[in-house]
Design a protein around this nucleic acid. Structure first.
Length: 877
RNA sequence: GGGCUAUUAGCUCAGUUGGUUAGAGCGCUUCCUUGACAUGGAAGAGGUCAGUGGUUCGAAUCCACUAUAGCCCACCA
């Protein structure tokens, strides 16, 4: 006996363990075209959030569906070592002990991170299991494991040998808190309400002013970053700016330092902005850096790694924090009479995507990858259709980024990550790059080397994920069979970080793009549309939702609210629908069990029985078609409607009093198992549990490996006499039933009261439905009269015929007359517009025949309605 | 400054080549403790499809402009 209530927790724990232990998730290279997907590896420090839940639910639905279709299916799991993120987590833990990573030293610190990973790194993969992910855990990978590390070293070396990796002194984004360089896309720009400071730089040779009084001859620059002033090495104007033409070539005095710097001209300067004169600080601004290069200016770095001023900033400011220094320097400028005025100014300021510190532009030696040569074939692959974005509009965004791609700064001044495989000879300084440490210096023959202290950007291992996880650089059977993967499913926010770079790496190193379809979904947002974040406290915890409603409920609800086209706003209540659906499935299963549904031959079927078989056939086809197009939400809706409306609301109700109960239940049994399998990709646990409870599967079998239903064969359909016509007929009958129920409600007929109904129809099949109509309508009698019969009773017109409710013995009020008058007015409007439409020669000439016929039918029907209502109105007069 | 996407019922959203009187879920109203299920059932109210103009016999759907919102990209100090 099935329990009264479904115990989701027990079932989910039980089935996941069975699946994993019996190798249900595992796949081996075989015949045919495989379906393969690599998971976007979550950070090893991560805990499951709604974004993962959405992303992985979509993947698991696709994966389970393909697997049931019989394809060799691999979903490969793993985690990302997440350089900065993980290092930060461990540093934070260290800080609690009052230590910094420097106190431990590099080796001990890295060991400490590994310890951390061993201890806590399993959290997210445990949580993924609770979601029901059917990932092949035997192939679980980590971006910092031995194989991935090997791939990274090989890739770096190859790119270096190809001249695509280079080292150089450039302005990079620098996070003073994390103490490392950041790639451009790791910087988040945010609106900042700041100021523009207008500062006077005296022209050399002019009279110095007195304290508090303006200089007589000066240039005025506007700056948002006064603290960088000590690093200025020029002042620039636009070459076409006549106002300042006379200044070009002269020198000005840098306030507070007394240093003389030149006035130069450069196209970069906008005449309209500020005063049209800009200070040039090559070591602290990317544009100024380029200007400096063009004009051979000195680069004076006035800051330390951690965002404090160094000795080059001037004795007074040494050691100050950069923002502290800004204040002090502005005060000094004012004191010295250099500050003209201050304006409010809004601009965008970059922040570290990890710790949110304001990013500093800083001159330093870093490693870069030349991206243009890698980007070109990656653009081509999407242009020629060998890789497809779903939805397609993302390809535009991809092109836009790829066509304007900048070189990628890949070195990070961290300790946790893949060490750069570049070695400097201790004796002669020769740089050697190789997959393993060099033994002998090729130049001087020395044996001592120093490895580059930096590590590589995390994404430098992630971009190899689709093939490094399959064994590359070794030639493995996995790589041969599963690469390229089929679908990549991810959110829009990492298209540039990850997807675009995987495209480039896949094509460059494997010769083929890493996947065929890139499926981009939206982001899960809080109910008010804001981004979910722990700090805002507006995030939903998928684990809590699993605890409250079950994993199936979470998955189904997610599927139902997911659209590939836009972000989804969610709140806790939205997950009730999944929970309610589970309850419905469970109860329907209990009903079948109680009635002892058994298999039996389908013969001499009633219209209702034919209807459910046809509906089942439609549902099977529809769900597959929708999933084929990645329409997860529509598929969920289709299967939900099929199960709830078709099976539970109508067929189960029919089966209760079917003329041949055994046959009706045999049909229900067949249809129900198809429904379970259609549902399985969405709700893996309850479908497995119910399939076993009802004996569809024996011990040792699993619904995971059952066939995904395709619908019925043409032979079956013919043998059973099921068709669109019968399906439509039953739909019409239901319409009639609903119409009568509506009339009952309108006239406040108590549910227990049996009424007298009349149906005007010429359909010969209708009379065969007398019993089922009586039951469904709670009718004492149902009489049939010829179509077009005109009775003075409340009526509703349906495709089945006109349904009349006898008012005999039912009290009515004058209010009814008013309602009828309103109804008549409404109908008059429809009739008028229909008549106008049909009188329009163009409409009749151009519109498809069916549309015109429908319009005529509708018009006639409305006219009939009017006639009846007028008659009724007399009754109430 | 460029680009993308949205705007449909009180709320969240469907609406796939333009074609009946625009749909679903939640919420709301009325009724129903009928042996699968009140996490349920039956019925109902609620929308000039953001605005304006255009194309068309016909527009939520196609085009243009406008308004509002959101996202992405971008070196105006």
């Amino acid at each position: 006996m099935m329990e009264k209530h479904y115990d989701a927790k027990a079932a989910e724990a039980k089935w996941y363990e069975v699946w994993e232990k019996t190798g249900c998730f595992h796949d081996e290279p075989g015949e045919g075209v495989p379906y393969s997907v690599v998971i976007p590896p979550p950070n090893v420090t991560g805990i499951l959030h709604m974004g993962h839940a959405l992303n992985e639910t979509i993947q698991d639905i696709l994966v389970r569906w393909r697997r049931m279709q019989g394809r060799n299916t691999l979903w490969l799991p793993g985690t990302d070592h997440a350089g900065i993120a993980t290092q930060n987590v461990v540093e934070k833990a260290l800080r609690k002990e009052g230590k910094r990573r420097q106190d431990l030293g590099r080796e001990a610190f890295v060991e400490r991170v590994w310890d951390w990973k061993r201890q806590y790194g399993g959290t997210i993969v445990r949580q993924q299991r609770m979601m029901g992910n059917s990932t092949d855990w035997s192939r679980e990978r980590f971006t910092f494991d031995e194989g991935c590390s090997k791939a990274v070293a090989k890739v770096f070396t190859q790119l270096y040998n190809e001249g695509l990796v280079y080292k150089g002194n450039y302005i990079v984004n620098w996070c003073p808190r994390c103490g490392t360089a950041l790639a451009n896309d790791e910087v988040e720009h945010e609106a900042n309400h700041g100021h523009l400071w207008y500062v006077r730089y005296p022209v050399v040779g002019s009279a110095l002013g007195v304290k508090g009084e303006p200089y007589k001859d000066y240039v005025m620059v506007a700056t948002t970053r006064p603290e960088t002033l000590p690093g200025d090495t020029a002042v620039a104007v636009n070459p076409k700016d006549e106002r300042y033409a006379h200044l070009i070539g002269k020198n000005v005095i840098l306030p507070l330092t007394g240093r003389e710097i030149p006035v130069i001209s450069d196209d970069y300067v906008e005449k309209e902005f500020g005063t049209g004169i800009v200070k040039i600080t090559p070591a602290h601004d990317p544009n100024d850096f380029l200007v400096g290069k063009r004009h051979g200016l000195a680069e004076i770095n006035i800051m330390t790694d951690d965002g404090h001023m160094n000795e080059l900033a001037g004795a007074k400011y040494v050691g100050m924090d950069r923002f502290e220094c800004r204040k002090a320097l502005v005060a000094d400028l004012e004191e010295g009479g250099y500050l003209d005025h201050i304006e409010d100014y809004d601009n965008q300021v970059g922040h570290c995507y990890r710790c949110h510190e304001v990013v500093e532009s800083r001159l330093s030696k870093q490693w870069f990858v030349k991206m243009k040569p890698l980007a070109e074939p990656a653009i081509e692959a999407v242009k020629n259709g060998s890789v497809r974005f779903v939805p397609d509009r993302w390809s535009k965004i991809y092109f836009n980024w790829m066509e304007n791609i900048q070189d990628w700064c890949i070195s990070r001044q961290l300790w946790w990550g893949h060490r750069i495989p570049a070695y400097t000879c201790a004796k002669c300084g020769e740089l050697v790059v190789g997959e393993t440490a060099p033994g002998v210096c090729p130049k001087c023959g020395a044996h001592e080397f120093e490895q580059d202290p930096d590590v590589l950007d995390t994404w430098f291992s992630s971009w190899l994920w689709p093939f490094s996880t399959l064994g590359w650089p070794e030639k493995t059977a996995d790589l041969d069979y599963y690469y390229p993967t089929t679908d990549l499913v991810t959110a829009q926010d990492i298209i540039f970080f990850w997807v675009a770079r995987m495209m480039m790496a896949g094509i460059h190193f494997m010769g083929k793009p890493p996947f065929k379809n890139i499926v981009i979904h939206g982001i899960v947002r809080a109910a008010d549309g804001s981004k979910m974040s722990k700090s805002k406290g507006n995030s939903l915890d998928p684990l809590e939702l699993i605890d409250m409603y079950s994993a199936d409920a979470l998955r189904f609800s997610i599927a139902l609210i997911t659209s590939l086209d836009c972000d989804s706003k969610v709140s806790k209540e939205k997950f009730e629908i999944g929970r309610n659906f589970c309850t419905k499935i469970w109860n329907a299963a209990r009903f079948m069990e109680m009635n002892g549904a058994k298999d039996a031959a389908f013969a001499d079927l009633t219209a209702d029985e034919k209807h459910i078989l046809w509906a089942t056939d439609l549902a099977c086809k529809k769900v597959s078609e929708l999933l084929e197009q990645y329409r997860i939400q529509d598929g969920a809706l289709a299967v939900y409607d099929f199960f709830w409306t078709q099976i539970c609301d109508w067929f189960v109700e029919y089966a209760k009093d079917a003329p041949d109960k055994a046959r009706a239940f045999a049909i229900l049994r067949d249809v129900f198992y198809k429904a379970l399998r259609l549902l399985h990709p969405y709700m893996p646990f309850i479908t497995e549990e119910v399939a076993h409870q009802l004996g569809y599967l024996k011990d040792g079998e699993t619904i995971m490996r059952a066939d995904f239903p395709k619908g019925y064969s043409e032979e079956e359909k013919a043998a059973w006499g099921i068709s669109q016509e019968v399906y439509d007929f039953v739909n019409a009958k239901r319409e009639a039933i609903t119409a009568l129920r509506g009339l009952r409600a309108e006239y406040k007929v108590p549910p227990a009261t049996y009424v007298k109904a009349t149906i005007a129809t010429d359909d010969p099949l209708a009379k065969g439905e007398l019993d089922s109509l009586k039951k469904a309508m709670r009718a004492e009698t149902v009489d049939f009269v010829p179509a077009g019969s005109d009775l003075a009773m409340p009526s509703k017109i349906t495709a089945f015929g006109t349904v009349y409710l006898s008012l005999e013995g039912l009290v009515d009020k004058a209010a009814e007359a008013k309602r009828i008058a309103g109804e008549l007015a409404k109908l008059a409007g429809f009739i008028k517009s229909s008549e106008a439409k049909l009188a329009n020669e163009n409409f009749v000439a151009h519109a498809p025949e069916a549309v015109v016929a429908e319009a005529r039918r509708k018009l006639a029907e409305n006219k009939e309605k009017v006639a009846q209502l007028e008659k009724l109105a007399k009754l109430f007069a």
